[in-house]
Nucleic acid binder design. Structure first.
Lengths: 110, 110
DNA sequence: TATTATACCTAGTAATACTAGGTATGTCAA
DNA sequence: TTGACATACCTAGTATTACTAGGTATAATA
């Protein structure tokens, strides 16, 4: 990551769900999309992403379908209805969390 | 925490430094201050805070002095010059990180 | 033909915060 | 007075998370 990796904790799943909501895609593609949408701030590693996708599918938050394209197998992931609900909840939590951090930082600048 | 604990990763040190910059305080007090300044969002556990303070002191980012008040021993922590520099750097990283998350979330809402 | 890009995967490691305890004193109500 | 709660410190072990560093395989390109 361009930013300290510690900040990623907890938000990776949120980011993955958000990208997949905008457009279903396969893992390799998702990494590039995430990088583009974040102005190169997020450079998620494959070793980070694939386990997340498997976990999300296990929990029924995303589903996948295999595609054969030019001799390559791709697993295209989409967000399920359940996943959309979780995404909305996590977005709320993110807002609450980031607002709280900003508030504490504001105190520290007085 | 009021928010999913995962989000805390990486930002706890930033929050602790920010609180101490505003006002030097001892551990037990810091937890209450952090809770107040965040509108009860951050309810940091002692088992989380004390190791962080020890690590920060080890790295020279804070320093402590013992105080005896009403039969109790308090260790009052202050941010060092080195700590202030690290705090500023971490604030920048936080801004970059949170902006990037918000940008990705905005894409997911289009 | 060798390198790079594509596309998937996992085992082991490091970092972080939490749980769940422990010690000890002061205060306040039953 | 005694038992509960708040104050104030601490640590060992655990869980979660993301990363490192590999592995497999095909297609394109230099």
């Amino acid at each position: 990551m361009a930013v300290d990796k510690g900040y990623m904790s907890g938000s990776s799943q949120l980011l993955v769900l958000s990208v997949l909501k905008e457009k279903p895609c396969y893992g390799y593609e998702l990494i590039k999309t995430l990088k583009n949408q974040s102005n190169n701030v997020f450079d998620m590693q494959e070793g980070t992403l694939y386990p997340i996708l498997h976990k999300l599918e296990n929990e029924g938050l995303v589903c996948s379908s295999k595609q054969e394209v030019a001799g390559r197998t791709r697993k295209v992931y989409s967000v399920t209805d359940k996943g959309l609900k979780v995404l909305e909840k996590e977005k709320e939590e993110w807002k609450e969390f980031s607002s709280a951090v900003n508030q504490v930082l504001a105190f520290g600048s007085m």
